[in-house]
Computed example of a mutant assay.
Amino acid sequence: MMVHARALVAAAAAAAVAVAVTLLVASPAPVAAQQRPREFDFTDPDCCPAPTVGPSPKPSKLTRLPRLTFRGARPGDTICGDVVIKGGAVPKDDLMLLTDVTGSMGSAIATVRAEMAALMDARGTVSDTRFGVASYRDESEFGFRLNQPLTANRVAVQAAVDSPDLNAAGGGDALEANLVALHALATDASVGWSPGARRLVAWFGDVPGHEPSCPAPGVRHTRSSVLAALRAARISVIGVSLAGGLDRPFGPAAGNSWGSCTPPSGGDAIAVGQGTSLTDGTGGVMAKLVPGTGTEVAALLGIIDALELEITSSLNDCAGVFTTAFTPALPAIVAAGESLTLNQCVTVDKAACDIVKAGSLFFTCNLEVLATGALFSVRPIALTGLKC
């Protein structure tokens, strides 16, 4: 689904009082979760004006909530408290830039090089963000290269972006090693994803990948297998698709697959929408851009904080002493510009008497709320004088 400029402007104005989330004139405006756009077609003037850098959204910090304390409690006793979650930025992000570095990508790579410092500065005002850089060409050259693991060292990131390793060259046939590279980002421990951050891949490209791609015996990458790996690693993908090429279909041809696939692919057609299947399926967004306009970084900035947030929760070091219930039930979705009041109820579990010595002077642990995997809030829970 695509959005239109008039609707974007109206929705943004209505949400401005609640929270600032847009970095672009045409960036995704706050919409209801069930209406969240999955694609922004900046090549269509009726959809979205050319993206331009605008004001930064409101910074996001870890929320530390008041303690919930049980005194002289018995199993079954319950205490509740609220936390307000605003859609948009999260306290901590890991942002991996993944780009096709074949010959057709020269203009896009030049834009990223020129604006990388501004990108890091902009994200740094919003959240605690680490950056990384990875690239791919055709499987015949290299299917995946980790140019810079995720790091807070901005000098190292800029050096990786400026390196000749990111020069646009080669590429072999029309299709590339997209699926190989995305699978590697989801499964290679050396990438360095943080356990407490939202995990984002900003994927720049202009053609889909070989499908299936079988770079080694017993390995068969398809859009569905790569999607499963990305989900398991809780990675959200933002596609920056030049001329919509990441979704381009290819008719039946022997070169559509790569490697010795078992079973053989038979030169099957590559269905339309390979890229969008991976952005949609991971809670990301696809942006379709006009090549050569230098808007790749501006589009990326605007989209990041327009992503909806998936709210989940966990008990940390509570050892089965407590159980929780939430209203509304989790997981819940919060769209950019919206807010959610989450009622957290904590109950002393009947197992507490077996775990904590009756009459124990003090037991404490934490109730955590996560926003798309990023630690959003921490609430201590304390128990004194348990009665069994």
Rank of each mutant, 00 (worst) to 15 (best):
M2W: 01
M2L: 13
V3S: 13
H4E: 01
A5L: 10
A7I: 00
V9P: 00
V9W: 14
A12Y: 04
V19F: 03
A20G: 13
T22K: 08
V25K: 08
A26E: 08
P28D: 04
R38M: 11
D41W: 03
F42L: 06
C47N: 14
C48R: 09
P49G: 09
P51K: 05
T52R: 14
T52V: 15
S56Y: 02
K58R: 13
K58P: 00
P59T: 12
K61M: 11
L62E: 04
L65Y: 03
T69V: 14
A73Y: 03
P75A: 07
G76T: 13
T78C: 12
C80I: 00
D82C: 00
D82Q: 01
I85F: 00
L95S: 02
L98V: 14
D100K: 06
V101I: 15
S104I: 10
S107R: 07
E115S: 13
D121Q: 11
G124D: 09
S127W: 02
T129L: 08
V133W: 08
A134S: 15
E139Q: 13
S140G: 11
E141S: 13
G143H: 08
G143F: 09
P149A: 04
V155D: 02
V161S: 04
D162Q: 14
D165V: 07
A168H: 08
G170R: 07
D173W: 04
L185A: 05
S190V: 04
S190P: 08
G205S: 10
V207K: 06
V207P: 01
P212Y: 00
G218M: 05
S225V: 10
A228C: 03
S236V: 14
S241E: 06
S241D: 11
L242I: 12
L242Y: 03
A243D: 15
A253P: 05
D268T: 14
I270W: 06
Q274M: 14
T276Q: 13
T276C: 11
G281C: 07
T282E: 01
A287E: 11
G294E: 03
A306W: 01
A306S: 15
S313K: 01
S313M: 02
G320E: 01
T323S: 15
P331V: 11
V334E: 01
A335F: 07
G337K: 02
S339G: 00
T347H: 05
I355M: 08
K357H: 10
A358L: 08
G359R: 00
F362I: 02
C365K: 08
I381G: 03
